[in-house]
Amino acid sequence: MPLLPIVKMTKTVMKSLLGGSACKMYPARKPTFFGGTRGPVEIDPSKCVLCGLCAKKCPAGAIAVDREGKTWEIDRLKCIVCSLCADICPKKCLVLRNDYTPPVTGETKDVFRIEPVSKEGHQDQGKSKG
């Protein structure tokens, strides 16, 4: 076997031996996300008018808007994090959080009660796991 090829890989091996870790050392070190990273959809329930456009346009059918029951519901596992809903929402009340969707083991539906802000400024909004 010619000697040169061995030297080739040795260079890389030496670099990894002497250099630092290539891993991001999670969870010991807190991960940083890029500004544009798309993550789970978040809603501001005080702004939503239950128009249902997001549910209609969502390519994955992850959102369900119930006008009568005044709820806005998202199935986290169905959502493909495309951000189409956030783009088209007329009230701009949806944003995609700037991190990764956390892993889940069970129920993934998040239900938000949509209630307009009352006169006193007190807002009765609750998030319940459904």
């Binding site: 890389t12 990894s16 290539a22 890029f34 500004g35 544009g36 990273t37 798309r38 493909i80 994090v81 495309c82 951000s83 995609l96």
Partner: peptide, 24 residues
């Protein structure tokens, strides 16, 4: 090592598009 280099490319993808593999 191949995948270590790939990871850096994925970082660029995420920085510019918002997704690592599925750019959207």
């Amino acid at each position: 090592h191949s995948w270590r280099v790939r990871e850096k490319i994925l970082d660029i993808a995420e920085e510019t598009t918002g997704g690592r593999v599925i750019f959207g």
